[in-house]
């Protein structure tokens, strides 16, 4: 796109313009996707519970999210008098911004990526580690006990699961030989000659499952939604929030969920590649394959939310530190050992 604009203006202005357009092309559809995915989440949840779900606003209730958005937008923003006002208002903005930032390195098709940096996966890890600040600052700035408890839980939970996510990512990076997202996707071509995706590899499949569960914990989705366990903490860190500030948390959370689904698709299930390495399937644009995979994983997230009861806090910590951490560490050893013996030509 920079080349297209640089015919009409100096290079730097063209670069700036094309980057801004690229950001808008990702962020605006993402917001629309978040609105529709909230609707899908409620519909799937309702279907599993034998209910109808949202069905009043628009055809099949499709406009429900927009009606909710409008309602929230017209409400009054209430800042508690004991709250730390500046931080109280900055916290939801941090959550929302961080949820959008990570999409800069997600490849949607061959070469369709805003920023094709060679540390793409590390960038995503860095950005997702920032997500905890929105929650912690909200909990502290609200100056209220339940949000504070929730913030403590959230920070412990996110740090715990980031450790195992880090090791899982290292396994994928070892196999792909790169941190660049596009290279990681391309490296998944042609398992056994006809399958696309690291998930089909018996050595990487257990890691793919662990990544899915860690992603649930990292985004604080059910069954790991202890940060907003309504039976104990009212509504967690969002308790004191109202109107747009509340909506920003809502949007940020779902944007993060979509990002985690996209990461599942990109790291383990071939991203924009069709699942079977067969020429006619490449006629379908890569972005449709990616969206289909993202939606499949989102369906799994909703399915889990509707069926599994909430974990107890000590069970959550046990799973993170005593199960996932050693197992993912073991797989780092197994995979690097396997690669050393096969790809890199025997013992050194």
């Amino acid at each position: 796109m920079t080349e297209f604009f640089s015919a009409y203006m100096p290079y730097e202005a063209a670069w700036l313009l094309s980057t801004v357009i690229g950001i808008l092309l990702i962020a605006l559809p993402l917001m629309l996707a978040v609105a529709m995915i909230i609707y899908a989440d409620r519909k799937i949840w309702a279907a599993i519970a034998l209910r109808k779900g949202p069905n009043v606003v628009g055809p099949f209730g499709l406009l429900q999210s927009f009606a909710d958005g409008l309602k929230v937008f017209l409400q009054e923003t209430i800042v508690p008098s004991a709250a730390n006002k500046g931080l109280f208002l900055i916290a939801p903005i941090i959550t929302f911004t961080v949820a959008l930032l990570a999409w800069a390195v997600v490849p949607f098709d061959v070469g369709v990526v805003l920023s094709d940096i060679n540390v793409g996966l590390l960038y995503i890890l860095a950005i997702s580690s920032l997500g905890v600040y929105g929650v912690v600052i909200a909990g502290w700035a609200s100056n209220s006990k339940y949000p504070f408890f929730s913030a403590m839980r959230a920070s412990a939970q996110m740090i715990s699961y980031e450790v195992s996510i880090g090791f899982i990512i290292i396994c994928v990076v070892l196999w792909a030989g790169s941190f660049n997202m596009s290279t990681i996707v391309e490296s998944q071509k042609g398992y056994y000659g006809f399958l696309n995706g690291h998930g089909f590899n018996p050595l990487l499949f257990p890691i793919a499952v662990m990544f899915l569960i860690s992603a649930l914990a990292e985004t604080a989705r059910a069954p790991f939604d202890l940060t907003e366990a309504e039976s104990e903490l009212v509504a967690g860190y969002q308790t004191e929030y109202s109107s747009m500030a509340f909506a920003l948390y809502w949007l940020g959370e779902y944007a993060n969920v979509i990002l985690m689904c996209a990461l599942n698709a990109l790291l383990f299930w071939g991203g924009y590649l069709p699942p079977i390495d067969w020429a006619p399937l490449y006629m379908v644009p890569g972005i449709i394959w990616l969206f289909a995979k993202i939606f499949f994983f989102f369906f799994v997230f909703s399915w889990v939310k509707a069926t599994v009861p909430r974990y107890r806090y000590d069970q959550l910590m046990r799973l993170g530190w005593k199960v996932f951490l050693p197992v993912s560490l073991l797989f780092v050893f197994l995979i690097s050992g396997f690669l050393m013996l096969t790809r890199y030509g025997g013992a050194a």
């Binding site: 540390v119 590390l122 960038y123 890890l125 860095a126 580690s129 920032l130 905890v132 740090i159 980031e162």
Partner: peptide, 11 residues
Amino acid sequence: AMLLVIVYVGA
């Protein structure tokens, strides 16, 4: 830069 963010800011 990424390590700085992951290790210092994130942990």
